[in-house]
Design a protein around this nucleic acid. Structure first.
Lengths: 126, 126
DNA sequence: CTCCCATCACTACATTTGTAGTTGCCACAT
DNA sequence: ATGTGGCAACTACAAATGTAGTGATGGGAG
């Protein structure tokens, strides 16, 4: 896989939209994001261009000659990279304090807690 | 509490040093960070100045007239803010997927797992 | 008394990010 | 043929960030 490019906050918004549904054209995306972001179409286009430069997106021409964008990297890879970097920056790279922090600062349902416990069991260092 | 200023990555390094031991002078900090960062003293000074502007640090004159820096915001508050923003950006604001992600991507000891389970129990939504 | 070093305040400058505006080009409706 | 509406390419520009350099200054070493 491509080494998960650095994706800024605004860019991340665009990526999410495309991870959710791809491919899409610039104007489709603009309309889709308009309610949440209020971005001008050119803003979206700039972000798209930058994401292509960074290798996070690919483009394809559709039949009618217009361009369409789609992810070039998997969401999971980017999440992992971002998470890694965040954990490094804020928790000195240690997973446990991070987990403790978020566990303490969240309200979870009993069901969620059950689920998480199960996952924890599977992450036992062997 | 002060509304937890936005702290950049390099700045975070400096903050950690001061949360760890404060107050410290610019040159003390420079020496302390040198091994890890290779920063010139002026770089550290710039970061310190910016952090003071942002309200993340305060200064005090020590007896010999030189200046000393110390945190003006608590680490926990900054961690919470950063964590909040990260969770928003990458997990759409939902704690559970975040916890799942980090639980799955970590190797934990049995002891750590026990501890985390206990904390999970306490975060039960009432 | 003088010169140098530590400190501090300013200035510098390239990149990245957020957020567009401007221009050029082409197919399609008149 | 022609104007217009879309789309793409390029340009703009301020704030934040990373990483220093330069100039002024005051107090000690000699």
């Amino acid at each position: 896989m491509t080494p998960a490019p650095d994706i800024s906050e605004s860019e991340w918004t665009v990526m999410e939209a495309l991870w959710d549904a791809a491919p899409q054209t610039a104007s489709e995306l603009t309309k889709l994001l308009r309610p949440t972001t209020k971005w001008a179409e050119n803003t979206v286009r700039t972000l798209l261009t930058r994401l292509v430069e960074k290798g996070a997106l690919k483009t394809a021409e559709n039949s009618s000659g217009t361009r369409t964008y789609l992810p070039a990297v998997k969401r999971e890879a980017c999440v992992r990279a971002e998470g890694e970097s965040f954990m490094q920056r804020v928790f000195g790279g240690a997973a446990k304090p991070l987990l403790v922090h978020f566990a303490q600062n969240s309200k979870l349902t009993a069901e969620e807690v059950r689920e998480l416990k199960k996952i924890l069991d599977q992450s036992l260092k062997s």
